[in-house]
Structure formats: C-alpha cells, structure tokens
C-alpha cells in the first residue's frame, strides 16, 4: 500500500506585498516547504511502516525534500499557478492522488497558509479527514490518529483511505545531512501535468487601507508614568 506525503504546496504569505497601485504582489514565485512539512513526511513514514511513501509536491526546482526524509519516489505536479485558490490547489492535488493506485492515506500539512486545502482534498476524494494531527499509525483497515482536541489530545480511529493533516509542534530536530540530500536527488521524480481547472474562483477587486484604529503608544522612558497612563486606559476599557 502507498502513503502519500504532500510537501511544498503552498505559498508563504510573508512573501505577499501590496504595491503602490494597490494590487497584491508576491516576492516569490513558487511554493516553499511549510513549517509542518517535515512532520508530514515523518507521519507518512510511521503510517507506511514497511509500505511505500511517495512524495507529492507542487514546487519546481529541488524536489528531494520528502525523499531525503524517507520517501521512495516523488511526484511533481507541473503547470499549476502557484497563486491558485484553495479549490484549485485542492483539485490539482486530488487529481494527482487519484492517478495513483493503492493509496491508503494522504498526509499533508495542516497549513495556516492555506487552512482549507486539506479538507477540500478529502472531500474531493470522498475520504474521511482528520485535521490538527500530532501522529498516526496504521492498523488493519484503519488509522489510529492522535489529534489536538481542546486543550489536550484525542485518539480517533479513521477508516482508510483517509486524509490526515499534520500540525508540527516543533521545528525539525534532526534535519537530513548533505549526504542524505544528495542520495535523495538520485531517487525517481515523475513530473505530471497538473489540472486545476473547472472550479469557481474569486476575482480580486483591489485593496483598501484597513479601518483599524492606530495603537495608543506610551513613552516608557518614565516607566511609572507610562504604566499609570496605561492602567488608566485599561480601566476605561473595563479590562483592568
């Protein structure tokens, strides 16, 4: 059976700028590895155990991210606008996943950059979906998934095939070394044409300035006076 690990599929919104003409512009032109992607590959390897992990990416260039962390091969989706909207991104991913045989789980980052895409992919595939996942393991015909729940965690059993969206709690502790990366670059990469067409989309009508009130800033060079002014303001707000 095959477990798919989706990586480098979303644009980093910190590369988003507003130009002098009021239009949104980007300083980058391709998806980058997200904060959750290293945990995605780890969870995919945990689920697969002795099975195959396949990396799936929407980024060009270096596609060895998953292979350097345990994937046996990688599929690179080409030709999809990196600024595609959530339904289009999910559609391109779902169509690429459907073209693979014997997939029992798709692991993807529960990405704050594109928070709707994992559940859209699941819905397009008609599979159950669990978000905010810490880890997962395979059992016969199902996955046992630990997800965040209120202030704690919850273990749920979900039938396979399923979509599991992982939210990393920490940065990657043991990054692959140069030797592992160079070896990963020798593993097979299949380039496939992406299809993100046929979905309703928003059209941008431009931007305007936010209507938020500016912050009231006190000079802290005299801490006692600044704190007194602040406490007075907070009392007026009814929060102190």
């Amino acid at each position: 059976m095959t477990t798919i690990a989706v990586f480098k599929w979303a644009m980093d919104p910190h590369d988003e700028r507003v130009g002098v003409d009021g239009n949104v512009k980007w300083t980058a032109n391709k998806p980058v590895a997200g904060d959750d992607d290293h945990a995605v590959v780890k969870v995919a390897c945990d689920i697969a155990a002795d099975g195959e992990v396949v990396g799936l990416t929407m980024a060009g260039g270096d596609t060895a991210f998953a292979a350097a962390r345990g994937a046996k091969r990688t599929i690179a989706i080409e030709g999809v606008d990196p600024l595609a909207q959530p339904m289009e991104l999910a559609g391109a991913l779902a169509r690429a996943i459907e073209s693979q045989e014997g997939v029992d789980a798709v692991v993807i980052g529960d990405c704050a950059w594109q928070p709707m895409v994992p559940s859209l992919v699941a819905s397009m595939l008609g599979w159950p979906c669990v978000l905010a996942v810490d880890d997962a393991r395979k059992e016969v015909g199902s996955l046992v998934v630990t997800r965040r729940f209120a202030s704690g965690t919850q273990d749920v059993q979900v039938d396979c095939p399923a979509v599991v969206a992982v939210a990393a709690r920490r940065e990657e502790e043991n990054k692959p070394g140069m030797r592992a990366i160079l070896q990963a670059r020798k593993l097979p990469v299949e380039n496939v044409a992406g299809d993100a067409t046929g979905f309703k989309r928003f059209e941008s009508q431009g931007t305007h300035a936010p209507e938020t009130a500016p912050a009231r800033i006190f000079d802290g060079s005299d801490p006692e006076t600044a704190v007194a002014q602040l406490i007075s303001a907070l009392a007026a707000e009814g929060v102190m």
């Binding site: 339904m87 928070p115 709707m116 559940s119 859209l120 819905s123 978000l131 905010a132 965040r148 979905f199």
Partner: peptide
C-alpha cells in the same frame, strides 16, 4: 472559524455546492 472541526465541515460543503473558498 478556522478551528479544525469547522474546516472539515466547510470543506465538504464547499465541494458539494461548488463554492469559491477563502480564508
């Protein structure tokens, strides 16, 4: 909201009604 359970529900709705999606 963007809470996990809510997003699972919204994802199913969006695909079935063929909606444009924004966060």
């Amino acid at each position: 909201s963007d809470q996990a359970t809510s997003r699972v529900l919204l994802g199913a709705i969006a695909v079935v009604v063929d909606a444009a999606v924004a966060h």
